[in-house]
Amino acid sequence: MLIEILFVIILFLSPLFLNAYWIDVLNNIGIYAILALSLNIILGHTGLFHMGHAAFYAIGAYTTAILNTMYHIPILWLMPVSGLLAGIFGYLVARPIIHLRGDYLLIVTIGIVEIVRIALVNNIFGLTGGSNGIFGISRPSLGGLVIRKPQQFFYYIWIFLGISVYLFYRLENSRFGRALNYIKEDELAAEGSGINVSKYKLLAFVLGAIWAGFVGNIYASKMTIISPESFSFWESVILFVIVILGGAGSIRGVILGSFLIIGLPELFRQFASARMLIFGAAMVVMMIFRPQGLVPPRSRTYSLEVLIGKE
């Protein structure tokens, strides 16, 4: 616990001594961390092989971008709208495929993210601006304060991350989180214990999609310009790797994973063009030495004293 508190303190003071470039790196880490936490619900907790999370992120970002540039609706108002649309989209695509097993689900989710990207490139409904994307998206403004500088975005993103961690932590340690874990362990036993497996799988998908939609909103207002290549299959792969490498089902692990996957290539910049080569090799090595992830989830324990004391 001490390490976590120390980490939060140092993190929140870091804009005081970091330059704009590194603050922006931290902002990217934060964005990926929230996305990965939302994927963690689907992949880490429920054990659904989902490699298309960028699709939901894209729906959120484009919803914000389109409604903001066309109707000038303030960014913050669009956050719930983006989440909602991403959630509805998540529901519609997940519903027919939710029963697919492991690897079949994996390839179909890859398909979804690719179809979404191609649709964006092809300027679907004349709304998405094709491969150039959409530009001129406003900044979020909180009661007169317009969030613009990297430092401001830093607090905006990391406070949002903090709220997400808090809510997801509670979710994990409750009826809902447990149900997802039962499904991951043994679908048939979960169903036989009275858990509506397909309903909970869908809920996991929709919740993950909603959160990815929120992040899409943050991303669009941070960049002010978005284009399809930010939402490719490759982004989904990165998120997938963050979750598995960090520790599936572990909030700490996923945040650490985001620092490593998004932060490390920045540190490798001195290796220039070889950095991705090193990165790929590092992924293999890390998996071999920590196949359960860097920080596997802790098991929930229940205090006997409390149980007996309350008799």
Binding site: A179, D186, A189, G194, T301
Partner: peptide
């Protein structure tokens, strides 16, 4: 036997409480 092998004994029973 189909238990949730990696979960605690209590959590296994909590699965039954779910419904």
């Amino acid at each position: 036997i189909r238990l949730f092998q990696n979960r605690s004994v209590l959590e296994n029973v909590l699965a039954g409480c779910h419904c």
